[in-house]
Design a protein around this nucleic acid. Sequence first.
DNA 1: TTGTAGGCGTTATCAT
DNA 2: ATGATAACGCCTACAA
Lengths: 344, 344
Amino acid sequence: MPESTTIKDIARAAQVAPSTVSRALHTDPRISEETTALICRLAQEMGYTPSLAARHLVTQQTNTIGLVISCISDPFASDVAIGVEQAAISHGYSVLLISSYRDAKREEQAVQSLYERRTDGIIVTGSQIDEGYLARQDRAPQPIVLINCPRYPHSISSDNLAGARDAVAHLVQLGHRRIAYIANPGSHQANLDRATGYKDILTHHELPLDDDLVVEGDGTVAGGKQAALRLLALARPPTAVFCFNDLTAIGTLSALCETGLRVPTDCSVIGFDDLELAAYSCPPLTTVRQDRGQLGQHAMSMLHRLIEGCGDVKPEILPAKLVVRGTTGPAPMAAGSRKEVNQE
Amino acid sequence: MPESTTIKDIARAAQVAPSTVSRALHTDPRISEETTALICRLAQEMGYTPSLAARHLVTQQTNTIGLVISCISDPFASDVAIGVEQAAISHGYSVLLISSYRDAKREEQAVQSLYERRTDGIIVTGSQIDEGYLARQDRAPQPIVLINCPRYPHSISSDNLAGARDAVAHLVQLGHRRIAYIANPGSHQANLDRATGYKDILTHHELPLDDDLVVEGDGTVAGGKQAALRLLALARPPTAVFCFNDLTAIGTLSALCETGLRVPTDCSVIGFDDLELAAYSCPPLTTVRQDRGQLGQHAMSMLHRLIEGCGDVKPEILPAKLVVRGTTGPAPMAAGSRKEVNQE
DNA sequence: TTGTAGGCGTTATCAT
DNA sequence: ATGATAACGCCTACAA
C-alpha cells in the first residue's frame, strides 16, 4: 500500500512550512487567501487525508465515544445504538461500536480497547459488569454511562418495574388468573424488575404464585418458543403469557401456532420493547413500549455533560408504556376442567 | 478527567528509561525478569493503558479494519457484521463499525472517517457507490472489499440470480401462474439480479409479465406490507408473492392476515435471506437462504489477503439455497377460468 | 541488560 | 503572513 501523503509533502510541494499547511487546512484567517487556496488545491490533488491519530496525540481528544452493546443483531441494542449515534453526531462525536456478546470477558476487552483508543467517553448497554464499573470510575479518565443499570450513578434506564406491572395488570383485568412469565436469565436489573413487577401484580390481586408458570427463555425467538412449549405442556397451562421481551413473545406465538392454539382466544401473549416487528405479527403483538432511541439519546447527552465536566448528573428513568394490540383478550371460559381448549 | 499515565511515568517510578518500560511491557526477552516484573506491577498499579494512537503513529498499522453497513438495525447487515467480526478476531483485527443509512453522502463520510483513522482496510456492504470505489482504488492506501457488488474486483456476493430463479421456479411448479414480485428500489446488483431471476423464470415458462404484479417495497416490514396491500387490491390479485427479502415477506404475511387470506391456501409467500425470524412466522416462511455470516467471513479474509499484499483476489459468489417451509403451497383452484394447473 | 536519540504526523507556541 | 521548534506517547535502531 502506497504511503499516505502528509502535510510535509504538501508543504514541500507548496514551498511553505508544514505549520502553514496545517493552518491553511484549518482555514486559519492569518494565512493569505492565495496560499490557502493553493494548499487546499494541492491537498486535494495529492489525495491528502489527515491522520486522526497524530492529531489526537497533540490535541488530546478524539471527538469519539465508544459504545458497547450486547450484540449487534439484537434489535433492542441496535435501536439504542441508532439513538446514541444521532445524539453523538449532533454533539460532534463519532461513535465506535463494539459488541460484547453478553460475555463479561469480552465486555472487559471492549472497554479496554476503548480506553486504549482514548475515546472521550463510553456508553455500555446490556452490561455484565454493571456496578463493577464503580470501582474503576475514579482512576479511569473517561466517563462511563450505563444503560439499564439504575443503581449506577451515571445511568439511564427504562421503567421496567412499572412496565411489567402494567402488562400483568392488563392481563388480570381481562380475567386471566393463570398468567405465566417467560423470564430472562441473569441478574440484570431489567430482568429483576420485570420479574418483580409480575409478582407484584399477582400478589396484589391475591393470585397464587405458581412456580411452574415461571420459566426461563434467553431473550431470543428460539428460546422463547422452547420456553413456551414447556409452558404449554403443563398439566394446567396458562391462559396468558407475559414475556420478557418481544422476541420471546414472537417465539411464544410460534409455539402457540404450532400447538394449534388461537391467539388471543385460547391464550393471550404480551411482550416487552415494542420492536418494529411487534406490530406485524399475526395478530399484532400487545407489548410494553420502551423508547430505545430515547434511551440512547439520553445516554449520549448525559455522557456529553460528563465529558464537559458537569458533574451533577443523576440516574434517569424513562417511562415504559403498555401498547394494547391483538394478542391479548379475555381469559377463555374455564369449562368444567380444561382441555377442550381447541374446539374447531 | 485525570491525565493518563504514560510509559514515562512508569519509567520515572521504576527508575529506568522509557524504552525499558516499552520493552518490558512487550515482554522483550532482553529485559531481566525482575525489571519486567517490577514494571508490569507498576503499570498495573498506576493504571497504565497504552495509547493506540501513539503506537499506530510509529508502527504505521492499526490492526483495525473498518466496516460500513447500511444500517445497524438491518438484520441482514448485522449478521454480515458478526461474520466479519469473527473472522477479524481470528486474523487479529479489531473492527470499527459505521452505518451509512443507505445514504451515499453518509457512506462517503464513513469511508473518509475510516481513511482518517488509517484502518488497515475497509469492507462496505449495501453500498450506494459500488463501482465508484474503482476510481479511488489506486490512490487510496487501504484496500476495500465490497459485499454484493459482483462487478467490483474485490467483492463477495450471494448468488442472487440463482436464488431468485429457484424461488420463482418453486412457485411455478406449485401451479402458480400469477406470481407477484415485491422489489427493492435502487439499482443495486442484488435488486437487479433478483428481479431478473423472477422474470427469467416467468418467461421461461411462457407466463405473461404483468406489470401490475411487480411493485416496490423498501426492504422493511412496513414497506412490504404496504406493497402487498397494493397487490391484494388488484382486480386479479396474485396467488403467490415473491419478496425481495424476509422483512418484506413478513410484511406481506401481515397484509394477508389482515385481509383475511390464508397462507398458503389462498396465497403463497416466499422471502429471501432466511433470517432467524423466518422460521418463526405463522406459518414458517419459505425463503432463500444466504449465509450472511459466510459473506462477512469471506469478505474479511479477502480483505486480509489484500492487506497482506496478495493481489490475486477475484470476485467470489456464494450460493443461495431455497428453503421450503410453510408459506408456499399449491395454487388455489381458480374457480371459473383457468385451473387444473397443479398436478400432484 | 539497559540507556539514548530520532521519528511517526500533527498542532501550538514562539519568533520573524 | 509565515517559519522554526517543541511536544504529544510510543517504538526501535544504535550505543553502552
